[in-house]
């Protein structure tokens, strides 16, 4: 109690500084919270797949359907797109616009390749009569993997939008923040894909 007066004087400034730092940047934290809520959506879909994944309704099982070589190719596309986005971020730190745009374009190409392979797989499955209406397992599979694919699709649209904006505006603070948000989003999708290829494809074939 005796040192309350001195404490007031001493801590007033520090307290002020701390508060000021906290309000400086809300966007990255807000975007992180969005990603966490997205994470919960995927958790629900994974839980659904876990519950329904063995209900084949006398239809095909994962072992009959999944082509792991195709999935490995798909995985490598997404992983490569992750590292090229990382290179774009490195070029952004050096403020080199053309190089950043180039790496972003390469990232977009890998993203589109991923989507192309996934659509080919879906088309193949549906063509074989293993569409989402065939069994509970396939409904859950198409919902989970399709939701991830939709996220990648919107990520690609977002990527192109930011490339156009970057080309127009250059490296403003706002642009850097937007590119950072997309970076989080893109890498987050790769994290979800780890769950998909492990839980759905690899464990599905082992079942």
């Amino acid at each position: 109690m005796a040192n309350t007066a001195t404490m007031n004087n001493a801590s007033a400034q520090e307290f002020y500084l701390t508060e000021e730092h906290h309000v400086e940047n809300g966007t990255m934290l807000g975007f992180w919270l969005y990603l966490m809520s997205d994470c919960l959506i995927f958790a629900c879909l994974f839980a659904m797949y876990g519950v329904l994944g063995a209900n084949y309704a006398a239809g095909p099982s994962p072992k009959d359907l999944f082509d792991l070589e195709l999935v490995a190719l798909n995985t490598s596309m997404l992983l490569l797109s992750s590292i090229t986005y990382g290179f774009a971020m490195l070029e952004m730190a050096r403020k080199r616009k053309t190089a950043t745009l180039m790496w972003l374009a390469i990232t977009g190409c890998f993203g589109l390749a991923f989507l192309g392979i996934e659509l080919y797989e879906f088309h193949h499955l549906i063509h074989e009569g293993a569409g989402p209406q065939r069994s509970a397992f396939l409904s859950a599979f198409f919902t989970l993997v399709g939701t991830h694919g939709l996220h990648v699709t919107f990520g690609c649209i977002w990527l192109v939008t930011l490339m156009v904006q970057l080309h127009k505006n250059g490296f403003t603070t706002v642009m850097r923040r937007r590119l950072n948000c997309l970076s989080l989003f893109w890498h987050f999708l790769d994290v979800v894909w780890i769950g998909v290829f492990t839980f759905v494809y690899l464990l599905g074939v082992l079942r």
């Binding site: 400086e24 940047n25 992983l79 990382g86 290179f87 971020m89 490195l90």
Partner: peptide, 19 residues
Amino acid sequence: DEGMPHVTFKGYMTGFILS
């Protein structure tokens, strides 16, 4: 810029190779 992560080539490559 505040809130921006500190990115390095080494960090990304380590992550990539491990992945």
